[in-house]
């Protein structure tokens, strides 16, 4: 029977393996800590810009956006997170009636961040920002109105 299975052998092997374990934790006791102090490092925190935090509709300085109210994003969304209300406006020169966006509601609570809406948008009117601080107390506050 090898030394390892004898009575003394098990004790020696046990003590050796326990000691190596404790050596590792002791070294860890004195190494630099890896914790990121979240609230303190808010200014310097760098989140990858591809991170999908919340859907936003960028507006240029005069406050109009690129959305043409085609409803493609509403259709491709798997669980009905986006709801667009439009109204038809007769254009003066051409006289044709054109759909204009009235309200662009986006339910952040139901979104699953699958980016199908952004891929489907022909005009690139909506995109994901990496703003992750969205916790709220009231469920209704999660329904955001994206167009100004």
């Amino acid at each position: 029977m090898s030394f390892k299975n004898t009575y003394i052998g098990t004790i020696v092997y046990a003590v050796k393996s326990l000691a190596t374990g404790m050596k590792v934790t002791l070294c860890e006791f004195f190494t630099r800590k890896v914790t990121e102090h979240y609230p303190e490092n808010r200014k310097t925190l760098k989140i990858s810009d591809r991170h999908r935090g919340v859907l936003v509709m960028p507006h240029d300085d005069e406050g109009n956006n690129k959305c043409i109210a085609c409803g493609l994003c509403q259709m491709t969304c798997p669980n009905g997170t986006i709801s667009i209300t439009t109204k038809s406006v007769t254009d003066e020169e051409t006289g044709k009636s054109k759909k204009v966006l009235v309200e662009y509601n986006y339910d952040l609570g139901a979104c699953m961040f699958c980016q199908l809406c952004v891929n489907a948008c022909p005009k690139g009117a909506i995109e994901f920002s990496n703003e992750f601080e969205n916790a709220v107390f009231d469920r209704k506050k999660l329904v955001l109105k994206l167009n100004k």
């Binding site: 934790t25 860890e28 006791f29 190494t31 630099r32 800590k33 890896v34 914790t35 102090h37």
Partner: peptide, 8 residues
């Protein structure tokens, strides 16, 4: 405990 687990 935190020191052993390299956290704060």
């Amino acid at each position: 405990c935190a020191a052993f687990q390299c956290r704060v």
